Structure formats: structure tokens, C-alpha cells
Deep mutational scan, measured.
Amino acid sequence: MAAAAAAGAGPEMVRGQVFDVGPRYTNLSYIGEGAYGMVCSAYDNVNKVRVAIKKISPFEHQTYCQRTLREIKILLRFRHENIIGINDIIRAPTIEQMKDVYIVQDLMETDLYKLLKTQHLSNDHICYFLYQILRGLKYIHSANVLHRDLKPSNLLLNTTCDLKICDFGLARVADPDHDHTGFLTEYVATRWYRAPEIMLNSKGYTKSIDIWSVGCILAEMLSNRPIFPGKHYLDQLNHILGILGSPSQEDLNCIINLKARNYLLSLPHKNKVPWNRLFPNADSKALDLLDKMLTFNPHKRIEVEQALAHPYLEQYYDPSDEPIAEAPFKFDMELDDLPKEKLKELIFEETARFQPGYRS
């Protein structure tokens, strides 16, 4: 834990890192770190609560700039109880001085990944967590956004079992017609939660990839272990087919990539493993919904509104309290091709509203 900075004593240090967030945020305490930044909790002297502050230093890398800009653009436009918001952003007053960006968010005690390492969940908890994931996802999908990296560590939890989806750095506007060349190379989302079509096709992607990830998360809540822990690309596919069985001819016809289709045709026939054999203690309604989410063919996979209306979630289902976005989200430009200098300018502009004396 960093010592509390005395008023006016300059930035606090946390594990050798400068955290320049005073005077409003003090009493910093280390939480963890990701690929390009550290997260601390801090005391907000204005709202009198502890908050989470993520320090991001992305400006050396085009990919990190892209992810940072995506996350900020999306989260500043989203407003939903099951999606983490941005409360404040701290950065230098000029673009030349801006080396880091500090993002202030609600402090959540833990995440689903940490929880599943230590606790076996009751059916009631599984049901409530799944409902909140789908409630947040309904809003995301209504904005025409794909999260693309749903996994237990991106689901934040607090002691009252509130759940918030975080990390929109890989999110995209849904565009089933656009052929994202190089899709697989830039697709760094965790393999275990990846839909089979991501490994088999490169053309376009749809909201059904997020539903697949939610199915993987439900299976993990039922058993405290990942359902498809593939060691590499082909191993991942083999794990999936080992449980779902061989795809039907109709399902194979959806695979545009001939090499991928021929690979699947070359494999020995596998039978589907019954879900109640894998999860003998699970609620039968939970397994019915799991089956509809972990469907090989993305066109037959359940959609988020149908999933919310499934009998497993009937005690929570309330369409009048499951809000959607006001308007579909649009990125003005494809960020993939922009140089990091341009992305830095866009991050600077996007964060201006939090600067003292800002006038829109």
C-alpha cells in the first residue's frame, strides 16, 4: 500500500510507478496490472468513496492506442447498470505532455475469474450472474457493438453480487458484411471463450460470437473449470467437437473457408456428449439454455433477447427493466489503419471533457 500523499506533496508512487492523480484522489492501494497499465484503488475526496484507477501508458504502440481509444469512446457513450462506466479521466493539459491516461471507475471487490478459483456457486448465484451478463449484453448488442472478449476476468463483482462487464478494448461495431482481413492475426481474445466460426472463417462476425462466450462462462460457473481449455488453435476446435459432436452437413455448409471445411470433413465422426453427463448436478433449465448458447452453427445460436426470456431466468426476466441503447454506435473511421500519432490526438480530444474549465 502506498503511503497517503500529504496535501501538495506531488504524485504518489505505487510499486515504483508514478500515479499522478492528486489532489482529488489519494490513499492509493495496488490492485493489479494488465498488459499496459496498473490498477489501484484510491480515495475520492470529492465523492467520499474509494474508486478504481487504471493507469494506461499506450502511446508507444499502435495496438494499445487503438484499444484505449475504443474503450474510452464506447464506455463514455454507454450507460447501463451492468456495464462499468467511466467516472473521470485524468491526463496532462497538453498533448505533448500526455504520456499516461488515468481512467477512474467504480471500485468492484472482485471478478468472476477470482471468485470461481475459490468458491463453488449455488444455482441461485449462477442464475443471477447469468441474468446480469445477458442484461448488459442486450444493451451492448442493441448499440450494434460486439464485445468480443467476454470471459470471467472481464466480469466485475461486488459483495452485493452486482455484476458489471468491463474491458471493451477489443470491441467492434457489428459488421457481418465487412471482410476484416487479418482478423485472426489481430484477434487476441482469450482462445477458450472463442466461437468456432472465428477459427473457421475470417469473413465478418456477428453478435452470436458473444453468446458463445457467455455459454462458455455459464459452463464454467457450473463446474469451476473452463469447458474448452484448448492449448492452441486446432486443439481448441477438437475440444469443442469432442463435446458438441461432429457438425451436420448443414452446419458445414455455413463454413465459407474450404480449407477449414475440408479439415472438419477429414475428422472421424464424434457423438455429442449429453450435458447432464458433463454437469450431473446442474439445473435442467440451465443445461437447456447452455445447449442453445453453445450451438456450433452461429445462425442457430440463441440471441440475447431470447436467452433473457428463457425459463431458467424467469424469476428475473423483465423486458421493461432491460434497457437498450438510445442509438446504434458508430465509429467515424476504422481505427485499425491509423498511425499511433493520430490515435493519440483522438484520445486527447475524447478525454477533453474531463479537463478543468472544459467548454463543449
Rank of each mutant, 00 (worst) to 15 (best):
N154W: 06
Q62V: 13
K99R: 11
Y113Q: 07
K259N: 13
A352T: 13
D210N: 12
R91F: 08
I53Q: 14
F296N: 09
R359E: 09
E345M: 06
Y131V: 08
T295M: 02
Y263M: 03
I90G: 02
M38L: 15
A2P: 11
L346G: 13
A3C: 05
I209N: 14
M98C: 07
D318E: 14
I198C: 05
G85Y: 06
T63W: 10
L75F: 04
E322Q: 04
L157Q: 14
P226I: 02
P229T: 14
N27D: 04
A143D: 13
E109G: 00
T63L: 13
D177G: 02
T295Y: 02
K231Y: 09
A9W: 00
K300L: 11
G245Y: 04
H310S: 02
Y30H: 00
P319L: 12
Q132A: 14
Y64C: 14
K285R: 11
N224G: 09
N297W: 05
F228Q: 00
G357T: 01
K164Y: 09
V145M: 12
A260G: 11
G169W: 05
K207S: 11
K259T: 12
D106K: 02
K342V: 09
A7Y: 05
R148Y: 08
A6N: 01
E341N: 05
L264Y: 04
S208T: 14
G357R: 11
D44R: 07
V14I: 12
G22R: 13
T110P: 15
Q249T: 10
I217Q: 06
H61M: 07
E33K: 12
Q66G: 04
E33G: 12
I240C: 10
D291M: 01
V145E: 15
G230S: 12
N224C: 08
H178E: 09
E220K: 13
T185I: 12
G37N: 14
D100V: 14
D291T: 10
Y43P: 04
M199L: 15
S41H: 02
N123Y: 15
N238S: 11
P356K: 04
T185G: 10
Q97A: 12
D177L: 09
L308C: 09
V145T: 05
I256W: 09
T351G: 09
I56Q: 15
Q306C: 00
L252W: 10
N154R: 02
A309M: 03
D149V: 14
L218K: 10
L308K: 02
Y25M: 03
G204E: 12
I86Y: 07
V18L: 08
F228S: 06
Q97D: 12
Y263F: 15
L252M: 14
H310Q: 13
E326N: 01
P328F: 10
R359V: 10
D337G: 00
A174W: 03
R277W: 06
G10S: 10
L265S: 07
M221K: 14
I324H: 00
C216E: 04
V46I: 13
P274T: 14
I324C: 03
I56L: 13
A5C: 04
L346P: 03
L130E: 02
H80C: 01
S266M: 07
E197F: 05
V46Y: 09
L163F: 01
I74Y: 10
A282Y: 07
C65F: 14
I53D: 02
P274H: 10
F59G: 13
R50M: 15
G245N: 01
A189S: 14
F296H: 09
E96L: 12
D179P: 06
C40H: 09
Y113R: 13
Y317W: 00
M333P: 12
Y205D: 13
V21R: 07
C40A: 09
A143R: 02
I211G: 09
I240D: 05
A92K: 00
G22K: 02
F354A: 03
N47R: 15
D318R: 01
I103P: 06
V145I: 00
I86Q: 11
L294Q: 14
F228D: 01
L112M: 15
Y193E: 10
I211M: 09
K48Y: 10
R15K: 14
D235C: 10
L170W: 08
N82H: 10
I86L: 06
Q17V: 05
V18G: 15
D332S: 05
S122V: 01
E109C: 06
I302V: 00
P196T: 15
C254G: 00
I243Q: 04
P356C: 03
K330V: 04
L258C: 08
S266T: 02
R359K: 14
A35V: 12
S246Y: 01
C127H: 02
H178C: 04
K259Y: 10
Q62A: 09
I211S: 00
F19H: 12
D88W: 01
A327T: 11
L163H: 03
M333Y: 03
Y102W: 03
Y139F: 14
Y233R: 10
I324G: 04
D167Y: 14
L287K: 04
I140N: 13
Q249V: 07
P298I: 01
A286N: 02
A286Y: 01
H180S: 05
P93C: 01
E349V: 13
L267M: 15
I256N: 14
K259D: 08
I86R: 03
P176M: 01
N47P: 00
P274S: 12
V145S: 04
V188M: 09
S202N: 12
L265T: 09
A352Q: 09
K138W: 02
I347M: 10
E96S: 01
K259C: 02
A352P: 00
Y263H: 00
P311I: 09
N87E: 04
A352G: 03
D179A: 14
L252V: 08
E81Y: 05
L200D: 05
M333K: 15
R172Q: 12
H310V: 06
F329E: 02
H232T: 06
E349F: 00
G242H: 11
W192L: 15
S57N: 09
F19T: 04
K207E: 01
I133M: 12
I140Y: 08
F78C: 14
N201S: 00
G16R: 13
P247Q: 11
Q105D: 14
V304W: 03
K330C: 02
I72Y: 01
A171T: 13
L241H: 10
L313D: 11
W275N: 05
M13P: 09
V188F: 13
S41N: 14
G215R: 11
G230M: 06
R24N: 05
N281S: 00
I84M: 05
L258I: 06
H147P: 10
G215Y: 10
L112Y: 04
K285P: 10
A171G: 06
F183V: 14
T295G: 03
N281E: 09
K344F: 08
D44F: 13
R50E: 11
L137T: 05
Q236D: 07
K54D: 03
A171N: 01
L290N: 05
K117P: 02
L69P: 11
S57Q: 04
I256T: 00
K344L: 07
I165E: 07
N224S: 02
K270Y: 10
G16Y: 08
S360I: 13
A9D: 13
P93S: 12
L313Q: 14
D149Y: 13
Y30K: 04
P268F: 05
P323A: 03
P311H: 15
V104W: 04
G215L: 11
F329S: 02
N201A: 09
A195L: 06
I83Q: 00
V173D: 07
F354M: 12
H141D: 00
R24F: 01
